[in-house]
């Protein structure tokens, strides 16, 4: 099996407390190669968060399997451990950046970023080096001693990103990480995510509500549809690659970009209309 994330015929059925059930995912399959960046779009309730939580290991699907094939089958030869690819729970190799409010307010920015290494028992001075390195990566040099609640929303998401990176995950999952930010900050953060993807070669899966964001950031874009939650359409796009060197604004101006954007927008629009119709 090639390295990367392998999703095989996943289905997820939630039992509702009052009886009845929701088919949040049905027969979802895909393979995400190591180093690829994927964005996931779709109207709310189509199972995006459910899918990501299964990959993170917070939920077990009711059918199908999620596996993550990582390269490292290493470790000292004496205790040669073979990493089990099947995802059964959260693991440091699969990091997550949440929308907001997942930072630890009782810790400084530096302590938040150093949390993962600290859990592994990395010595203090090494943690300090790691923290400095990732503060720089996300452009927050000198903010280490600040309290997280003193930072703006955009800066807090930078810290969340740095905290995730400092733990050196192979796969980075993000559930609407920029959803609560203003347009300008959002654009800067999109650039930052592309830069990190390009420089570290991490595998990334990101959920977003913004079609533009999905096109900018996704080498691959999944458009999901609800009831049952499924992948309706997949795109392979050049913009993430180009965005590493070109400005996002220039890319936005091109005809092909706006064509794809309109196509996806009307697709999602129709889905939303249908949902509304069914509710009435």
């Amino acid at each position: 099996m090639a390295t990367g994330l392998h999703i095989d015929k996943i289905g997820m059925i939630y039992q509702l407390p009052g009886g009845g059930e929701v088919e949040a995912l049905k027969d979802v399959s895909f393979h995400l190669d190591k180093g690829e960046i994927l964005t996931i779009l779709g109207p709310s309730g189509c199972g995006k968060t459910t899918l990501l939580n299964i990959v993170a290991g917070f939920l077990v699907p009711t059918s199908g399997t999620a596996s993550f094939y990582s390269e490292q089958i290493s470790g000292p030869s004496t205790s040669r451990q073979v990493l089990e690819p099947l995802i059964t729970g959260p693991s440091p190799e699969r990091g997550m950046v949440f929308q907001q409010g997942a930072l630890f307010e009782w810790m400084s920015v530096a302590e938040n970023i150093g949390f993962g290494p600290g859990m592994k028992g990395v010595p203090k001075n090494e943690i300090n080096t790691i923290v400095e390195q990732y503060l720089e990566t996300v452009g927050l040099q000198g903010f280490g001693n600040k309290a997280v609640y003193e930072l703006s929303g955009g800066m807090q998401q930078r810290v969340a990103l740095a905290r995730c990176l400092a733990n050196e995950p192979e796969l980075i999952l993000m559930d609407e990480p920029l959803g609560a930010l203003d347009a300008l900050t959002r654009e800067k953060m999109q650039g930052l995510i592309l830069k990190i993807w390009n420089e570290t070669g991490k595998t990334i899966a990101l959920i977003t509500h913004s079609v533009e964001e999905a096109l900018f950031l996704g080498q691959r874009v999944f458009v999901m549809a609800p009831r049952p939650g499924r992948i309706e359409k997949e795109y392979r796009l050049p913009y993430a690659q180009r965005g590493v060197n070109e400005s996002l604004r220039d890319i936005k101006m091109t005809d092909e970009f706006s064509q794809t954007r309109e196509e996806i927008l009307s697709m999602i629009w129709e889905m939303e209309e249908e949902i509304m119709g069914r509710q009435e």
């Binding site: 993170a56 699969r94 997550m96 630890f104 859990m119 592994k120």
Partner: peptide, 29 residues
């Protein structure tokens, strides 16, 4: 507590004991 804090701690490699002492306890203070 916000569940995402607990989830974040586990993905960062914390054990149950570490989640209790480093996340749940300070959050409840």
């Amino acid at each position: 507590i916000r569940l995402s804090k607990i989830h974040a701690a586990y993905t960062l490699g914390a054990s149950k004991k570490q989640v209790l002492l480093r996340v749940i306890l300070p959050n409840a203070l």
